[in-house]
Each structure stands twice: as C-alpha cells, then as structure tokens.
Design a protein around this nucleic acid. Structure first.
Length: 826
DNA sequence: AAAGCGGTACTTTTT
DNA sequence: GTACCGCTTT
C-alpha cells in the first residue's frame, strides 16, 4: 500500500517532469524565433505593458507569441482576451497561435474585433439594456438612411442637413460617449452646429436614437456606447464580464477611440494585466474618433507600465525604412523611436510621372510585368494602393486590358449590390421584425401592391404611436392615417409571413432558413425570372449570398468540432454586418492576383512590391485635409503606412491630369514626395513637374492667346494641359510660387500661410470667361438629344458655365456645358 | 404602381 | 461620368 502510494507519487512526479520538459520546449520554441526586445515583451505578462511597434517590426509575431506563452504557462485560453481591428487580423493570429499551441487551445482564446466581441456580450445583456436579444446591426448605409428618415420626420431640409454629415456628427458624439442629453447641454457642440447652420442636429440625433431603439437595432457606434453603459450601470454585468478575463491584449491601440479606451480600462481595472500594441506613426482613423492620445497617454493611466520598443524592421529594405522615416519626421509629437532595417539597402524608391491617370495605370502595369520577368515575382506579390476608392477604376481598366488578374478590396462590391441588400434585408427583418429600414426596403419587393402611399401612412401611424412599422401594422386605428382596409390586409399578410419565418430563427439552421426566406419572400423567383444579362447576374449574386450562408454554417461547425450547436441566421448576420473591407475578399480570391486597395485598408498588410498611385496635391494629401496641421499630419501618417507596406520596392506615381467628378483636374505632385529625403529616391523630383511650368514650357506658351490652340481636342489628348488650362482656361499661368520651391514652406504651409496653400491660381476678374472646351458664341453644334443648334451666349462662372443654345427644332435651351452632350457641327 | 426622365450631388478614409 | 432622388407619365 505504502509502496503503491509511493509509486503513484513517483509516477506523478515523472509525469510532471515530462510535462515540464514539453512545456519548456514549447516555451523555448516560442522564444527562439524572437529578438531580445520581442522576447522581453512576450515574457512580461504581468501588469500593464505598452509595446510601441514600428511598421514591420514583428508586432503580430509578438502578440501571438505572447498569447502562446501565456497558454504555455498554464493560463486558461478563455481567460485571455485579444482585440483587433479586423476579423482578418484576428483570424491570422488565431492560426499562428494554433501552430504554436494547437488548435484546441487557440480556438478558445477570446479573439476578435472590438465590435464582434462586444456584440456577444451585449446579446447576453440585451434585456437589461432594453434591446431584443436578437437585435440586429445597422451598417453605414442603413444608418444614413435612418438619419435621413429622421431628418424628414423633423421637417428639416436634407440638402442643408446632409444625412452623411449629420451622421458623422452623431457618430463622433457617440464615440466620445456624448448622449443626446449631454449633447444638448454641451454649449460648444451646439454653438458649432449653429455656426454651421445646422442648429437642430441634436434633434436629429434624438430622433435617430429613438428610431434605432424602436427598431431593436444598434449602429456600429451603439455597440461601443452600450457596452460602456452596461459596464457603468450594471455592476453585475461588469463583474461577470470583467472577471472572465485575466489578460487583455489590444492591437492597433493608436486607433482606439474614447469609447473603446474606456471599455478596455474598465475591463482591465481589476488585474491590470493589459498589454497594448501600437504605433503612433500609424494612427490613421481620427476621422472615426480614434485618439492618438490613448497611446501617448498610456503611461498616465498606468504609471507602473513597462514600455517596449520594437524598432527593427524585418519587412522592408533599409532604403524603404529610411525613406519612410524621413517622411514621418515632419510630424511633431511622436513617441521617440528610431526604426531601422539591416542588410542590403535595396532599391531606391521609384518615382513615376504620367500625363493622365490612364497613363499612370499603364506605367504601373508595365512595371509589374517587367518586375515579374526580372525578379520572377508572382501577381500576389504586388499591391497598388490609392487614397480614394474611385481611383481603382483606371487601374482596373489597364489591368484588364493586359489580362492581369487582380482583386479589389473594397466594401462597395458584393454587399452593396441592390439584390444582395434586398436579400440581406429580408434576413434582417426575419431575425428582427422591428427593423424599420429593412422593413421599408423589402415590404413591396417583389411588388405586393403596397405602395409609397401606404408605407407613408404606416410610418405616420408608427410615429404617432411611437412604435415600429411591424407593430404598427397591427394597430386598429390605421384608417385614421389614410390606410385603406385592402392595404392594411396586404401589409398584415406581409407581416404574418415575416413573423412565421421569425418563429423559426432559433430552431432552424441558417442555410435552411435562408433558402426558405428566399422562396417565401418571392425574391428568389423575382430574380430568377429575369433572363436579361444583368438579371442573370443579379440572380447569381442572390445565389452566391445564399450559398455563403451555407459555407458560413460549415465553417462554424468545423470550428465547433462536432459540438451539436446549430448555427442560425442571426449568427450569420452578425458576422456579415461586422466584416471589414479586407475581410470580404475570399482567401482563394487573392491567389495569384494583384491587390488593389485604399491605403487605409492596407494597414497591417504587407507586399513585396507596392505602388502608391495618385501622389498629387488635393488627392494625397486629400483636399479635405489641407485645412489644419492636425489633419495634414494624419495624411502624412497615412503615407507612412503606404510606404511601409512594402518589402522590396516602392513606386510612387502621379499624373498631370485626372478625371474627377466628370472633370479634368490638374494638381502638382504631392508635397509628401518632396518630404522624402532625396537620397532614397531614384531620381530627383522636378521642382516644376506639373501644373506649374517647365514640363510644358513655362509662361508664354499658355497665355491668353495660346489657350485657343492648346485647347484643341487633338492637342489635349496628347498633351495633358497644365493646371491653369484644365482649370478653365481663364486663370493666369501661375508664377512659380515660392511655396513649391522651399522645402521649409512645404512642411508647414498650412499653419503659417493658409491663404497661399489652397488656390494656386488667382482668377483674373477682368478677363472674359471662355468655355473650357472648344465651344464659342455663334458656333453651330449638335446635341445628342436636342439635335443641331447654335450657341447664342455663354454665361456663368467655371465650373458652372452655361450655354444658351437655340436648337433648330426645339428653340432655346440653357445647358450646363460640363454635362451637355454636344459637339461642334461637322 | 412602375418606369423613365431630368436634375443634383458626388469621392476621403471604415468598424 | 454615375448614382440617386423626385417628378412625371403610362
């Protein structure tokens, strides 16, 4: 007996030793792949930790290793919370952790985006917060539509109260946890709104919130606001949620806003094991409330915190890193750090100068093909980045022309299609019948003889009773709002259909229910019967959406490893609503394809070869960002992000003219190009490349008399005109301004001389306006629709030039030249 | 009630 | 140049 016990104890001890050796091996394996500083950061698990991680410094490696290290120390996976900005980032980290500690443990780590993790908690506490358990989430376009509806209900002019602007105002209020009441009490905010001639924004805010409430819906910001409310007002919830975790990690901390900051603070206040990772130089989301202060002030909140700096860049060549450094040094108030790379300095950054955006695109495509031959690179090694989504067009055209496979990372592709939105609205409405925007969208799709008039009356009834459209449908005083009994019956039939589907949500698999909705709603049949080419494409999209429900369900089952959960449509919706641009693209879709995306979307990604296109003033930096020094610094960080995506080579391109909003625009090369230390560029940037002088001959050639010839169409096609021609032709050729010559001035032109920074060209008030094109008074023209005629006179200011035309058949008409489809008569 | 037209605004970035 | 809105027409 004694011996037996002894043996057991010995065995246990052996097992313990054995176990320890395995663990030590695991730990060693984890730490072996790290440099000194990374290793320290990984092992410093207790207490607050700030990791300032430069671009390409192995930030993800540190984060994943740190989680793996914690698990190897015996920490239970579900006590670790890791927050990221995109699902893609979270997914990749999970995969890497799984490689280190196995999938079983890795999957149990609570890892996801702020929004998706918090939504889970909010579901558990939906009741106390006054939401239905199956609340749904409004995306940007739903929110905008709801704001618009709120504006209309308040009888405000939606051309003054532009829904997008109002929403962004409301959004920043929410991101700073300013409720409607606090907003009303905030004299500064009210004054600002009054000053911008929109004093009733706060009323719209109030109405908008009411609508969301009645609809049982949260917008993106509400997820954060409600999380804060929950943690503030519900001690039980705070206790339950905060005590679940003993370690918290936050990625991209520089991009957190106040609401997120406060949630993290509350969750960490017990154990203070909070590790945040970020790079102040890569803070690019101020427009959605991100506060760079959060990372700068981390030390103030956690005085005992340890700081680790990851300064060695493993991604990029020294030339790229130094070029990026030289740019970011133009910003004030950064966390001091010196990023560096070792090894072969690599190629210098390449400048590409083109006449038009098409030329620019061609140059880029040629460079890609050349590079593939010289370096044996594959398509997926390339990324083309740009400031605005609209710029992808010209690039796509050229890529298609040369049969180069590419993938565009952008939100407005699949999920923005009308037919997909219709189907999704049905899904949302079935999950949450109170959802007003979804209700309005699909109530008469396919046609059920429930027209605008009926819907308007129903809205009035809902408004009067302070309830949702769905509930309003069953009121018994609907006649008072002008609804005929036939219409009421049809509406109620629709609601009954939705309700019967709604009953099945929690008991039916997502895919089965999706199919049933597609059938019962009649949407499937509606799209199927349209046999036109576009109709077939629409049908295919609806099919694809429904199929994606199936693959979602499969993914979930795989993840759950046979646990007998059923995955329902509300799970699917939640997942879809919180996808980011980079999440939407299928992994298989990126195989051997050139990637196109905005610089914002590119954050966190890397490619061997990066092209940054549209390096022009007013585009990058954006013209909307030229007003304040703060904004310029954010644009500069954005440019920094762009450059540091590259491993081997960076090409920066700019065009002399490009089409924007249907007009040709000319801009000089971006100031950021001038900010790159010239020793890292393959050639010096011409001081006077575009829009100023030089390239097209200075001054004389484009005077008043010179304009008539240069504006001839054939001439214009070959030679991109400098700015003063494209801008309308009546401005003087600018004198080479001192601003473009002096780098010091270029660094801070805004704060010192705001007047000079914007209009590079002063219009001559005495000069008679000429049309920007070939049209003259007295000329005969031919209009696409109105036929032949004669130009009587031309009035108005650029760009609103109007031509009075007497048409031979139709008489006089006033046409806006920039839109009129007419040409000189042959 | 749907389709078709003309007018208007739009392009900064996104969870 | 396009997407969207609201008005008009059938």
């Amino acid at each position: 007996m004694v011996k037996n016990n002894y043996e057991i104890a010995l065995r246990r001890y052996h097992f313990f030793l054995y176990f320890r050796i395995i663990m030590e091996n695991k730990v060693r394996a984890i730490l072996d792949s790290l440099n000194d500083e990374q290793g320290k950061a990984v092992q410093c698990t207790e207490g607050p930790v700030l990791i300032v991680a430069g671009a390409g410094s192995g930030k993800t490696r540190v984060l994943t290793s740190r989680v793996a290290y914690l698990l190897a120390q015996g920490v239970e996976p579900d006590r670790v919370l890791a927050l990221t900005f995109t699902k893609k980032a979270a997914g990749e980290m999970k995969e890497r952790i799984a490689l280190m500690v196995g999938g079983y443990k890795a999957r149990r780590v609570v890892m996801g985006t702020f929004h998706s993790v918090f939504v889970r908690f909010l579901r558990d506490w939906a009741g106390p917060l006054g939401y239905p358990q199956q609340f749904t989430i409004y995306d940007q376009s739903d929110s905008t539509a709801a704001v618009k509806a709120a504006i209309k209900e308040l009888n405000l002019d939606d051309t003054v109260y532009k829904p997008r602007d109002v929403l962004s105002r409301i959004s920043s209020a929410k991101n700073n946890l300013i409720t409607v009441g606090a907003y009303r009490a905030d004299r500064g905010a009210i004054q600002a709104d009054t000053y911008s001639k929109k004093p009733r924004i706060v009323d719209v805010y109030e109405r908008y919130q009411q609508k969301l409430r009645q609809s049982g819906v949260m917008d993106f910001d509400d997820i954060l606001v409600n999380m804060n409310i929950l943690l503030r007002d519900n001690p039980q919830a705070l206790q339950s949620i905060a005590s679940r975790f003993s370690y918290i990690m936050v990625d991209e901390y520089q991009d957190t806003n106040y609401a997120q900051y406060l949630i993290i603070k509350k969750l960490a206040q017990g154990h203070r094991n909070i590790c945040v990772v970020g790079d102040d130089s890569q803070s690019i989301y101020a427009f959605r409330g991100a506060q760079i202060q959060n990372i700068l002030n981390f030390k103030k909140d956690y005085p005992e915190c340890r700081l680790f700096r990851l300064e060695r860049n493993y991604r990029s060549t020294p030339n790229i890193v130094e070029a990026a450094n030289s740019v970011i040094e133009h910003n004030a108030g950064r966390i001091p750090k010196k990023c560096y790379a070792q090894g072969d300095p690599g190629e210098k950054l390449k400048l590409i100068r083109a006449f038009t955006e098409q030329d620019e695109a061609m140059e880029i495509v040629s460079a890609i093909q050349k590079r593939m031959r010289s370096d044996g690179a594959a398509y997926q090694d390339f990324a083309i980045l740009y400031r605005t989504n609209a710029q992808s067009r010209a690039l796509e055209e050229q890529l298609r022309r040369r049969n180069i496979p590419y993938v565009v990372y952008s939100g407005n592709s699949f999920f923005e299609r009308a037919e997909v939105k219709d189907m999704l609205s049905y899904f949302k409405l079935v999950v949450n019948p109170l959802d007003e925007e979804s209700f309005k969208r699909v109530v008469n799709k396919p046609a059920r003889a429930i027209g605008d008039t009926s819907v308007k009356a129903l809205i009035a009834a809902a408004l009067a009773h302070g309830t949702s459209l769905f509930r309003a449908a069953f009121l018994d005083d609907l006649e008072q709002f002008g609804l005929r009994s036939a219409a009421v019956l049809k509406i109620r039939a629709f609601c009954a259909m939705i309700d019967s589907l709604h009953q099945k949500v929690s008991s039916t698999g997502a895919y089965d229910l999706a199919r049933e909705i597609a059938d019962k709603s009649g949407l499937y049949a509606l799209y199927k019967e349209d046999t036109s080419i576009e109709g077939q494409a629409r049908f295919a999209n609806v099919e694809e959406l429904v199929n994606s429900v199936a693959s979602f369900e499969e993914d979930c089952r795989e993840e759950a490893e046979g646990a007998e959960d059923i995955f329902t449509l509300d799970d699917f919706l939640e997942n879809v609503s919180l996808l980011s641009n980079v999440d939407i693209v299928d992994e298989e879709d990126t195989n051997n394809k050139v990637a196109l995306m905005t610089v914002h979307s590119a954050k966190g990604l890397e490619f061997p070869y990066v092209f940054v296109s549209g390096m022009e003033e007013n585009l990058f930096p954006s013209q909307n960002m030229l007003l304040s020094q703060k904004d310029i610094e954010e644009e500069r960080r954005l440019f920094y992000v762009a450059i540091t995506r590259a491993g081997k080579a960076v090409s920066l391109s700019y065009a002399g003219t490009r089409m924007r909003n249907g007009r040709h625009e000319s801009n000089s090369p971006s100031r950021f190009l001038r900010e790159i230390d010239s020793q890292y560029l393959d050639r010096p940037l011409e001081d006077d490349s575009f829009g100023v002088s030089g390239a097209f001959g200075s001054g004389g050639g484009f005077g008043r008399s010179g304009f008539a010839q240069s504006a001839h169409p054939s001439h214009r096609e070959r030679w991109a005109p400098p700015a003063h021609v494209a801008a309308g032709g009546y401005a003087r050729p600018p004198k080479p301004s001192s601003e473009s010559r002096r780098p010091e001035a270029a660094r801070s032109p805004i704060s010192s001389v705001p007047a000079q920074s914007k209009p590079a060209y002063t219009p001559d008030p005495d000069f008679e306006p000429l049309p920007m094109s070939e049209f003259r008074v007295g000329q005969r023209i031919e209009h696409n629709r109105f036929g032949p005629g004669e130009i009587l006179d031309i009035t108005g200011k650029i760009p609103e030039l109007k031509a009075r035309v007497r048409f031979d058949k139709l008489g006089e008409k006033l046409l806006l030249l920039k839109y009129a489809k007419m040409r000189l008569e042959k």
